[in-house]
Design a protein around this nucleic acid. Structure first.
Lengths: 341, 341
DNA sequence: AGGCATAACCAAAGCGCTTTGGATAACATG
DNA sequence: CATGTTATCCAAAGCGCTTTGGTTATGCCT
């Protein structure tokens, strides 16, 4: 069933039917009701592409998820982020176009999206410390919101980010307050912007306590369980082992916990661990009391916020650039305790 | 830059330019070359929607990912599945349209996709034991491939699935071979088709060894770490505790491992664990020797296969229905060992 | 009564592409 | 030479919608 058929069926013109369905004022209320009912009864829904052609808008948002070429890894937070964003799109009749591309092919993907006009805007995932994508998108004139920040000119583009440095500074300070002095950092890949900021926060806290950062207890890699295990194992086996860990993700922390168990120690009693918790749906940090002490910030929520911001910008409600800095909360779980003498 | 402009620029008709770019035979080779070069030079790419309108095809595939309403959980395997499928789409110039919807609203989503003709076909995720979606999609006339199977009329629709029952039968037998007799099952939600089949395989193996299934050591729930921990903890604390576990996912098994550690035992020495491993990119089962003994089958690969099958069907190459049953491999890691006397 | 808003509707153009149904010139055929 | 053939190109219709620029009643005002 298309517009023309529906219009004929009702004995009305396509114009009127179209207007009735799109809530234009110049149509009689009784007529509108009749049209809307007929549309429902006949299961009519406007053809997406035709609508897009006519309006020049695609009613779709693009998400370009980079796949790390070196490791072929998809960042596990992205599923929950997408779920959050998706809810907002559904509520606003937008589609979500997903491209997972090796990070080297990202530029081509964005150019393609712009040229074919297949989306009205995009969300940029996983910004690096210096990210060429933001100037590219500016050049292409494609509206976008970055989940995170890239180092350059923070106020020139739209982003939603967690205050990562502050977050890790607090986490580190929390361990100092418990008496720890030898605190290790198990970070994500530091060419990523978020990881760089997290290290800054950690280092800042060390400085505040008169300590210089020690490369021997600072690691950085893709955040897998295996990595957490290896990093913790080697540090724990060293001559001057840490008594506490600040860990960038729950998955990595699970590896750290395994390494602690392997040497017969107990997390929370012998060795403390504090993590960043993205509140992933399938990796909850305990449902009554938290397993890990954590600074937490829901990535699902971030997804919602990014989507809302982008739609807002596309609809021209608010003039860009828009920025949103979220603070994380510190929740205390069973993985931390006072330094044992 | 659109077709008309490009045509004017070249002093050719739109027809000829369009044909040149789409590899039609009735255009001079020299002309084609000229057109293709001009297109590249001017950064021309056909407008997606216009093309779709004209051809009646959208060059897009829909993925409808159900979000469990009870638990608000996104199945963590889906990211890797999508990554696999996405590669195939990119290679074939198709877009991927993603909808994450609460499982109750799925029907509406499919109807909507069909009515608006926004996709050429869909992939069905997470089939239940009896799933209404397959008859719905048949009725809507939307081509589809199911990742997994639903109980009904298996040969009437297209699917790609792992041989889950056989897989779990082998896993259980492996534990029997090591001398275990008290073997627990930590399964996924049994209204899902895959979980039901896995239990069948497990029960089959028990029967083969003259044992009746014992509900006291069989659990079923959403596959989280927390669930694995709780399930194992309670079973291990019972009067007749299991000496081995068959676990439906790596994440859940990580919880089982935690519970084993909590009571001062060691996985692989005191208690054996065998898992199903989906080979998730961010949750690798060790990179040299496997952490867990596992029956494994890459969900990334399944994504590729589903996508290829669907495109093939849409292009009319092969008459449906098509089915593909994958066998998993059994890899031996450090989580299993002979029954201790 | 004439003039003028206003409400309610419609015909047709246009969005950017593909495709149908020619047109033209060059060339071969009988 | 008249007639097919073939190679190469083109004008225009059509995909299903929105939107521009009307038209036709109807009611109100002076």
């Amino acid at each position: 069933m298309n517009l023309k058929e529906l219009a004929n069926l009702l004995g009305l013109s396509q114009t009127t039917v179209s207007r009735a369905l799109n809530d234009y004022p110049e149509v009689n209320e009784a007529t509108r009701k009749r049209v809307v009912e007929a549309a429902r009864a006949n299961n009519y829904s406007p053809n997406n592409r035709a609508k897009g052609l006519a309006t020049g808008r695609s009613m779709a948002i693009g998400h370009v998820i980079p796949i790390s070429t070196q490791h072929e890894i998809v960042n596990p937070i992205f599923a929950d982020f997408i779920a959050g964003a998706g809810q907002v799109y559904s509520a606003n009749n937008h589609d979500m176009l997903l491209s997972m591309v090796p990070d080297l092919e990202e530029e081509a993907t964005y150019r393609n999206m712009a040229a074919r006009r297949s989306v009205d805007g995009v969300i940029v995932h996983g910004p690096r410390a210096h990210d060429p994508r933001i100037s590219l998108l500016d050049e292409l004139g494609l509206p976008f919101v970055v989940h995170g920040r890239a180092g350059q000119n923070e106020s020139d583009y739209n982003w939603v980010d967690v205050n990562n440095s502050r977050s890790f500074q607090r986490a580190t300070n929390f361990l100092f307050d418990l008496g720890h002095r030898r605190i290790a950092l198990v970070n994500g890949l530091e060419d990523m912007d978020f990881a760089r900021r997290r290290r800054e926060g950690y280092v800042e806290a060390l400085r505040d306590h008169g300590l210089a950062p020690d490369p021997a207890i600072m690691r950085s890699s893709e955040m897998t369980e295996e990595y957490g295990w290896k990093a913790a194992r080697s540090m724990l086996a060293s001559t001057n082992p840490p008594t506490a860990f600040v860990v960038s993700s729950m998955l990595t922390a699970i590896g750290v916990r395994r390494a602690i168990g392997d040497i017969g120690q107990r997390m929370g009693r012998d060795i403390s661990v504090i993590i960043h918790d993205d509140v992933l749906s399938y990796l909850r940090n305990g449902d009554d009391i938290p397993i890990f002490t954590a600074v937490r910030s829901s990535v699902h929520h971030a997804g919602r916020l990014c989507a809302e911001m982008l739609l807002d910008i596309i609809q021209g409600h608010t003039p860009p650039p828009r920025n949103l800095l979220l603070e994380s909360e510190l929740v205390v779980g069973g993985s931390t305790g006072p330094l044992r003498a």
